[in-house]
Design a binder for these strands. Structure first.
Length: 908
RNA sequence: GCGCGGUUAGCUCAGUGGUAGAGCACUACAUUGACACUGUAGGGGUCACAGGUUCAAACCCUGUAUCGCGCACCA
């Protein structure tokens, strides 16, 4: 057997193993297999994007699920792919063109520009998928999909046509969230509210005098004086304090004209002045009010949010100004006209588009909308348990969204994406969407339109818009499986989805709805079966967001986002994976610290060195059967611990079953480091040192048996190091990937608590050494006066003594029948009283300190216990077993206290 | 404003009724044979606060504070 390197070197291992796995086709899913299916579709990352830590966590969890399922004998499909990310990619290419060629998208024809984006995609499209390979993802790359693949594109358009025909998709002029930076509409779900510091401007609206009235005015508090020219009315609460003015007119202060005072329930008297200025074309609420009162819809903003209020009027100078400059200027103009009463600092929430970092402009615009089908069914999926969210509390968020669902604005004024399959008759003149003018609103216009994929004939023009990227990804769970070879029949519904809660509406909910409505697996004989056959997925695991140590989101602009591949180079892919998964808390965001990755690497190295040590003792037996050999109590103890790792109160099986990955990782970590390495391996050294030890073979077999379990349990988390050790050490020859996932291990019938007692005694003895400040390499003689139980019922053997001596770094352990004549520092252990020599080692003053401290703690414990035992109420109502525990504790503590007092007495 | 989640050691987190835990960081000691990516020991906590339930509360209930997230017709 080759000797292993002194430390685990991931670089020597990772690429070689990944290549081997690929060549041998381990990740390939076979739809013809008779094995039970297990499937996951990868949330497709932006095709030209780069790997982030979020991707690492997310895909590591998918890999854990996939690899474990393979080891459980399932036919696994983990389907990878990428997303065309319409606006994001287009923006990136436009930025590149601006910098490299000083051109905008409008310097090209649409076809030329889209060709440039494809070129960009060819150049950068492979980066993220190659990065996923670097971290060991076991997806079936032969099935990689892209949301703009020809077939996929056609499927998206088919869905559009179908929904149009079914009446779920319509075109309309409505208020949308307009991004003046990207010049496109976006959906409600893509608007991010942000607190903004601004001002509340108090503006005088003078009443148009009527015969017999005094000059009067109403005051409006507004954050947006730049929209005053678009005011169509003032609204007040019906029957409220301003109700007397209803029906009168006021002078609009800029672009002076009379506008009516109207009653509307949308007005809250407690807000501002209780008088609301109504700009139906620039505010969602005002739009509704405008419709109710048949007001005029005046749009005074260009698509890029500059003022454009044509005609002759008194505020003409605002034209051409950006909305924020216009805000300032209009306030000044009001001031100059004596119409601005005051302005006060004010914080309100404004919607932003994340991509362009621009304040969203509520804007009247002609767009395509989708009314969601199957909403009640989608709600039932979760409430009736067909689909489960982990952690569960996201269910409520999902339900709330569905209960308040609004139609989805699905058209985008973007060139890179799925073109809307709608055609306009030759005689129709469509206004190009990028013209820099406000829209002409004519809600009554009817269009001669045809909705179909192919051009209906000469002269017909296709709608210039593309579809929201999410309108393609909502089909991802099943459309990626359309391969004509039975893949969808075998693997859909998918088993699990792993994603972030930030796209619960954008993607997760919509995929469930798509499954319900399009029924990719067809109709079955009962409603329930139809439902179950068409679930997009059965379990959804939501990861937390990764933040930096200050709690900020990781982002490129903040520069707080570590490069995952740098971390791989430093700590290895397994170190990164294991470190991240072990620390990721359930249902909460992750506070990233590189130290955690370092721990992951250290753990892999620990595992490596345990195996290295084993390989020095001779060849490994891949079929080791420890229960067939005579065994030490330490081997039995180890086997017992393994049993509990599988079946204890907290165990790996349950943790993974409950999607508690950090718990599973922590359990294995603690087991390997604290049970296996720190206890069993140290005790095994005694066996290994003596070739003639009768338990040597049993210890070797236990070692191999337990290590075989550990490597397999760990493989989904740390695929490279476990595979390397598995094959190099001879546990197997081919691969660990297709070995059996271990779920249980029996206890030894011969198990006794003695090994635990020895470990506990060693801990106590080591503490004693530490307290009298013995250098850790100084060998000293210990004496033990065994308790009666130890001396009579279960003798303290020489082998046990050797192990205890090794743990204590003792030169010898003298077993005495009575305390030594000249007793030194003493401690109570499960084995009896443990003594250090009185002379030569101990400074009496330090020893007195030690005993005094120990006595104080004992007295405190004793007092606490006695308080309980003295409380009649407590004794009466607590369970008897608990009371017994307290009684036993009291006895021990009394003896300990007595003995410590004696020691203290002797020390003077 | 409503809803969800958090608040435990310097840091990151476990801990769903019975004497407060882990890793990191810190301090001391130790480099002969698995591992310094190590070993041994130590210091360090009014479990956010206030009430309540209970024999007993970090844990259950109510309220408050605070942080994060989501939702809302936030003029």
């Amino acid at each position: 057997m080759p000797e292993l390197a002194k430390a685990y070197e991931p670089k020597q291992v990772e690429d070689r193993l990944y290549q081997k796995w690929q060549e041998r086709g381990y990740f390939k899913a076979n739809p013809g297999s008779s094995r039970k299916p297990y499937s996951i579709v990868m949330p497709p990352p932006n095709v030209t994007g780069k790997l982030t830590l979020g991707h690492v966590l997310n895909n590591t969890i998918q890999d854990i699920l996939s690899r474990k399922a393979r080891m459980e004998g399932k036919e696994v499909l983990w389907l990878p792919g990428t997303d065309h990310a319409g606006l994001a990619t287009q923006t990136a290419v436009e930025k590149h063109l601006r910098q490299a060629e000083k051109k905008t998208r409008h310097d090209f024809t649409r076809e030329e520009f889209v060709a440039r984006v494809w070129k960009w995609k060819e150049e950068f499209g492979g980066i993220i998928t190659s990065q996923l390979r670097k971290i060991g993802c076991s997806c079936d790359w032969s099935r990689e999909r892209f949301t703009l693949d020809k077939d996929y594109e056609r499927a998206v358009q088919e869905v559009f046509v179908r929904l149009y025909q079914e009446g779920f998709i319509y075109r309309g002029t409505r208020m949308v969230n307009w991004c003046p930076g990207s010049l496109t509409a976006i959906s409600d779900e893509e608007v991010i509210p942000r607190a903004q510091k601004g001002f509340l401007y108090y503006v005088k609206y003078e009443l148009v005098p009527e015969p017999g009235t005094e000059p009067e005015y109403l005051v409006v508090a507004t954050t947006r004086p730049e929209t005053i020219m678009a005011d169509a009315a003032l609204a007040v609460k019906p029957g409220g304090k301003w109700a007397a003015y209803i029906g009168r007119n006021v002078w609009r202060p800029l672009h002076r004209a009379p506008i009516p005072v109207i009653p509307d329930d949308a007005v809250e008297e407690g807000f501002g002045t209780g008088v609301l200025k109504v700009t139906p074309a620039h505010d969602k609420t005002d739009y509704e009010i405008g419709k109710r009162h048949h007001l005029e819809f005046t749009d005074i903003l260009t698509p890029d949010a500059r003022i454009h209020d044509p005609g002759e009027h008194d505020a003409i100078e605002l034209n051409g100004l950006d909305r924020f400059a216009a805000r300032k200027r209009s306030a000044e103009m009001l001031q100059e006209r004596g119409l601005l009463l005051k302005e006060e600092p004010y914080e309100n929430t404004v919607g932003f588009s994340e991509r362009a970092n621009e304040a969203i402009e509520p804007r009247l615009s002609k767009q395509w909308f989708m009314r969601y089908p199957n909403v009640p069914e989608a709600l039932a999926l979760l409430s009736e348990g067909y689909v489960k969210f982990h952690p569960e509390h996201w269910t409520k968020v999902y339900a709330h969204w569905l209960e308040h669902i609004q139609d989805w604005c699905i058209s985008r004024q973007v060139w890179w994406g799925h073109r809307i399959p709608v055609w306009y008759a030759p005689e129709m003149v469509e206004v190009p969407s990028d013209i820099m003018m406000p829209v002409t609103v004519n809600p009554l216009a009817t269009n001669d339109v045809v909705c179909q994929i192919d051009c209906p004939g000469e002269g017909w023009t296709q709608d210039p818009d593309t579809l929201d990227t999410w309108f393609s990804s909502w089909l991802w769970a099943y459309e990626t499986m359309r391969t004509g070879d039975g893949t969808r029949q075998k693997f859909y519904p998918t088993s699990a989805l792993v994603t972030g809660p930030d796209i619960i509406f954008l993607w997760v909910a919509r995929m469930l709805i798509a499954g319900l409505h399009f029924q990719p697996n067809g109709e079955k004989d009962t409603v329930e079966k139809t439902l179950e056959a068409n679930l997009a997925f059965r379990d959804v695991y939501f990861t937390g967001l990764i933040r930096d140590r200050q709690g900020r989101k990781l982002s490129k602009s903040l520069g707080n986002s570590p490069e995952p591949l740098d971390l791989v180079a430093k700590y290895g892919a397994d170190g990164l994976r294991f470190g991240l998964v072990r620390i990721a808390p359930q249902g909460a965001d992750i506070c990233f610290d590189e130290k955690q990755i370092e721990e992951g690497r250290n753990f892999c190295n620990k595992l490596w060195n345990i195996c290295r040590f084993r390989s020095m003792q001779g060849p490994i037996d891949p079929n080791a059967e420890p229960f067939k050999h005579p065994r030490s109590i330490f081997a039995d103890e180890m086997l017992d611990r393994l049993h509990y790792l599988h079946a204890g109160e907290r165990n790996v099986q349950d943790a993974l079953h409950q999607f508690n990955f950090s718990e599973a990782a922590s359990l294995i970590y603690d087991f390997v480091w604290n049970e296996f390495a720190a206890r069993f391996v140290e005790a095994a050294k005694i066996d290994f040192a003596h070739g003639d030890s009768p338990t040597r073979e049993g210890t070797l077999a236990t070692f191999d048996y337990v290590m075989s379990h550990v490597l397999r349990l760990l493989h989904p988390f740390a695929p490279f190091v476990t595979e390397e050790l598995w094959c190099e050490l001879g546990f197997g020859t081919e691969t660990i990937q297709t070995t059996l996932w271990p779920t249980q291990s029996p206890r030894s019938k011969a198990w006794s608590p003695r090994a635990q007692e020895i470990y506990q005694t060693a801990d106590i003895g080591r503490t004693m050494r530490g307290e009298i400040k013995l250098p850790s390499n100084q060998k000293v003689p210990f004496s033990l006066v065994p308790s009666s139980l130890v001396s009579e019922e279960k003798p303290f053997t020489d082998e046990q003594k050797s192990v205890l001596a090794a743990f204590l770094n003792a030169s010898e352990i003298k077993v005495l029948s009575a305390p030594p004549a000249d007793p030194g520092p003493k401690a109570f252990t499960p084995l009896g009283e443990l003594y250090l020599p009185a002379t030569g080692l101990v400074d009496p003053a330090a020893e007195k300190d030690r005993v005094t401290k120990e006595l104080a703690k004992t007295e405190k414990d004793l007092e606490q216990t006695r308080r309980k035992l003295g409380d009649a109420n407590m004794l009466a109502k607590a369970p008897p077993a608990k009371v017994e525990e307290w009684r036993a504790l009291e006895v021990t503590l009394i003896a300990k206290e007595k003995s410590l007092r004696e020691s203290l007495g002797k020390l003077g």
